[in-house]
Simulated assay, not measured.
Amino acid sequence: MLMRAISRAYSGGMAVDRVLANLDLNLLVTLDTLLRERNVTRTSEQLGVSQPAVSGALARLRRHFGDPLLTRVGNRYELTPLAARVAVLTGPALAGVRRVFDSTADFDPSQLDREFTLVISDYAAAVLGPLLARRLGHLAPGVRLRLEQTTPYAVDHVADTLRAADGLVIPHGFVTELPYLDLFEDRWVCIVSEDHPTVGDTLTLHELRTLPWAVIFDRPTAFAPAARQLRMLGIEAQVDVVVDGFLQLPFLISGTRRVALIQERLARMLAPVTGIRILDCPFEVVPVAEAFWWNPMYRNDPAHAWFRELIMASAASLRTPEPRL
């Protein structure tokens, strides 16, 4: 068994290299968290992975140990006798592993010579990109930041995307079963031309049904979530312009009868130069919840860990909600 093997290795009963050859560190982390939380949902939240991924890991652990590890008692789960013994060993084992990796993680960001690639929408690049670039320029002048536009293909083939990039910035709802960091939220708003001939200070659902629209992508796996929500209300937009980026939308609205859905922060940035008005949506809209998704192969890469912390620090100011219109 995994922990018995570790225990024997510590006591000299087995060669350390043989233990490491069979040791899945990700599984060990999941085991430790499961035995502490005794709950698949809380474990997935702690690790930042999906519940199916944790359930799959638990199934592997049960096969490995030949023991259920967690058994239901009423409305909660309890550790089996074997799991209780294993729980005593996971903490020290993980502490030892962390000490090994910590010994290689000491580096000076100011001396770092590396390129970090983010696959990111033009909206997130406009809102988050400058904050991240300024911090990088100050702390790590030798680092190059590459921002690549998100495409439907990149999202549909996220495993391939994250083998070639350091991360993907995209809202929740498109990617699963990968580690992520929650960055910030934004609000969907409607935009119309400043001199729109029929729309006043508010929009109605009837106007959303009858006005022409400019939309982003408009494909089954590429869409603005707010637009999908509009369809769920039975409103099918009369689309006459489709674009592949949010930055284009205000320019295609100005001077026309069109309407579009866009993130409030971006709308506020572009309103002064595009001649648009920002209006509340006439229905309750789920907010944009942007997250940074990354390949678990970078979990123990000290430079990538530093980059993840930098992204979170850069997004900190965006976690304060914009004042309402």
Rank of each mutant, 00 (worst) to 15 (best):
E290Y: 09
E290Q: 10
E290A: 03
E290R: 07
E290K: 03
A291P: 01
F292W: 13
W293Q: 03
W294L: 12
W294T: 05
W294I: 02
P296E: 12
P296S: 07
M297N: 02
M297T: 08
M297K: 12
M297R: 03
Y298H: 15
R299S: 02
N300I: 09
N300G: 06
N300E: 09
N300V: 09
D301I: 05
D301K: 06
D301M: 11
P302G: 05
A303T: 10
A303Q: 08
H304I: 09
A305S: 11
A305V: 14
A305I: 15
W306C: 06
W306A: 07
W306I: 04
W306R: 00
W306S: 05
W306D: 02
W306G: 05
F307Y: 03
F307E: 09
F307K: 01
R308T: 03
E309Y: 06
E309C: 11
E309G: 14
L310N: 06
L310V: 02
L310H: 01
I311Y: 05
I311C: 00
I311A: 08
I311L: 08
M312Q: 14
M312S: 15
A313G: 04
A313M: 01
A313V: 05
A313S: 11
S314T: 09
S314V: 06
S314E: 13
S314G: 13
A315Q: 10
A316M: 00
A316Q: 01
L318A: 12
R319N: 12
R319F: 10
R319E: 11
R319M: 04
R319Q: 13
T320E: 15
